[in-house]
Design a protein around this nucleic acid. Structure first.
Length: 485
RNA sequence: GGCGCCAUCGUCUAGCGGCUAGGACGCCGGCCUCUCAAGCCGGUAACACGGGUUCGAUUCCCGUUGGCGCUACCA
């Protein structure tokens, strides 16, 4: 049995979105699980649309997800180059071979002629495949046309019969070759087309398993016939159902597809994104839903992959992200939250040990209230900014109510007189205050909460008070008195 | 139009001839409680349709419908 070699072959004509990264993940899992190699090949033959920016973004996103590859454009390998645009010389010998065996032929039909025959064909009986007009030419005729410089393409001559393959996820799939066009494998400008380049690249890179999106199912028989004409057994194919956007539309660059990098910027952690993608179209025996990359590696089994296109559910991703955030220890969570606070100017570019430890206390107090890392800005702003931003509704619902003023005045006194500012001490003092005033604790707490945080929701009030400290707390109570009725 | 793939709660799914059709997200209600989260408990909600096969179909076969993909000198 040959050593497993798989590849992820994106074209740098856009950002990596959930669908593409899921394909990458599946390939990675398969390779790692089998102890094989994972190759990153960049299909950048579409010079018009490919850009180095997209290439860099794709590499960055894959790394962020935690996927690594053994061979690729930036790290090299024994089967390079890994940029398809640099492999141009490897296609010609194969074309020659096919031309010699008669499995390919020159076609002089112009795009305009073809277009005309195609539309006429479609008008009469729906479909149209190339009519093999140029197959009629004798050798001499063809050579003279070539000699006089008539523009031509090379077409692959699809054999008769049926082509079938055993798909790793879909099972047996069969096509009648009569449905297949004599596809162009070399363009007028001499460059290879996708279906041909893929075969040659996969062949030369010794790829054993092709795991890709279901949008390639119809390409598979075309590629298989080329593999065979080239004298090789095709690799094993596995087609993953497409990922649909929440509205059931296919994820695409213009319709709802969010780049992986965008998830990073929105405060999702890679653990959650990976876990969610794995669950999209795959399930584990039993009810386990949480998987680290390593656990996926141990348990992933292509046989349990769903055949049905899955639609992406942002709610579940949020839930999953919150879960992974909860699992992180405080130091780690703090670390990840820092860039988001810095971006908002709530934190200096460099942190001293004291600032860091203060931030850790804030993060610890916030506990599991973060759904995405960016929530930190809203939730911790009042701890980090000098001034409180008062929420209008909170003020009108709580501070502007009768009695609020008296409570704040009373609390100011109680807090001034507390022997220390530990949560337990504060709780005792405030409970006593409430009791004496014949008020429920809640009635007392809410005005204080709004005074301190500007909002009606926050972590526990005693811990918040304690972390804010006496000086700040009292100052904020004073400031809030200006907002009471 | 042709060819191909697919079809269980709104969504992700378990199921591989006999189940009160299970779980998860969301949603609703409750508990907890100083608020908000979290947590716990409970509820809501599905086998697309029609034929077969079978003692018995969500499950197997065929058809219909629907969704999606491909149908380029794009990848």
């Amino acid at each position: 049995m040959n050593r497993v070699r798989v590849r992820f072959a994106p074209s740098p004509t856009g950002f990596l979105h959930i669908g593409g990264s899921r394909t990458a993940l599946l390939n990675w899992l398969f390779a790692r699980n089998k102890g094989g190699s994972f190759v990153l090949r960049i299909e950048d033959t579409d010079r018009e649309r490919s850009t180095p920016e997209y290439l860099n973004a794709i590499i960055e996103d894959l790394r962020w997800l935690g996927l690594d590859w053994d061979e690729g454009p930036e790290c090299g390998g024994d089967f390079g180059p890994y940029l398809q645009s640099e492999r141009s010389e490897s296609y010609a010998p194969h074309v020659e071979k096919l031309l010699k065996t008669g499995d390919a032929y020159h076609c002089f039909c112009s795009p305009e002629e073809l277009e005309e025959r195609r539309s006429r064909g479609q008008a009469t009986d729906g479909g149209w495949i190339y009519d093999r007009k140029c197959l009629e030419f004798g050798d001499d005729e063809r050579d003279s046309l070539l000699a006089e410089g008539r523009p031509s393409v090379v077409r692959f001559r699809v054999p008769t019969g049926k082509t079938s393959f055993d798909d790793m996820v879909l099972g047996k799939i069969e096509f009648d070759n009569a449905e297949l066009d004599d596809l162009v494998i070399v363009r007028q400008d001499g460059t290879p087309t996708y279906n041909f380049a893929v075969v040659v690249d996969d062949l030369e890179m010794a790829i054993t398993h092709v795991i890709r999106g279901a949008d390639h199912i119809s390409n598979t028989p075309r590629q298989i016939v080329i593999w065979k004409a080239l004298g090789h057994e095709p690799p094993t194919f596995g087609h993953q159902p497409l990922v649909l956007a929440p509205d059931k539309q296919v994820m695409s660059k213009r319709r709802g597809a969010i780049a992986v990098g965008e998830y990073r910027r929105r405060g999702y952690v890679p653990e959650a994104v990976v876990n969610y993608m794995a669950l999209l179209g795959w399930s584990y025996e039993g009810d386990q839903e949480f998987f680290s990359l390593d656990e996926l590696l141990q348990n992933f089994d292509m046989g349990r992959a769903s055949k049905k296109p899955a639609s992406f559910d942002p709610n579940k991703l949020d839930w999953m992200n919150a879960h992974w955030l909860k699992k992180l220890d405080v130091a780690d969570r703090t670390e990840r939250v820092i860039p988001f606070l810095q971006a908002e100017g709530l934190l200096a570019e460099t942190l001293g040990p004291e600032e860091r430890s203060h931030l850790e206390q804030v993060v610890e107090l916030l506990d599991d209230r973060l759904k995405v890392l960016t929530d930190i800005v809203e939730l911790a702003g009042f701890f980090l900014a000098p001034d409180v931003v008062y929420d209008k509704i909170a003020v009108s619902k709580v501070l502007a109510k009768p009695g609020a003023e008296e409570i704040l005045v009373g609390l100011h006194k109680v807090l001034s007189e507390c022997p220390d500012f530990q949560p337990e001490t504060l709780e005792g003092a405030m409970r006593k205050f409430a009791e004496d005033a014949e008020l429920s604790l809640g009635k007392v707490v809410q005005p204080l909460r709004v005074a301190l945080t500007g909002r009606t929701a926050s972590p526990g009030i005693f811990e918040t008070l304690s972390l804010l400290g006496r000086k700040v707390s009292l100052a904020r109570i004073d400031a809030a008195r200006g907002l009471t009725a």
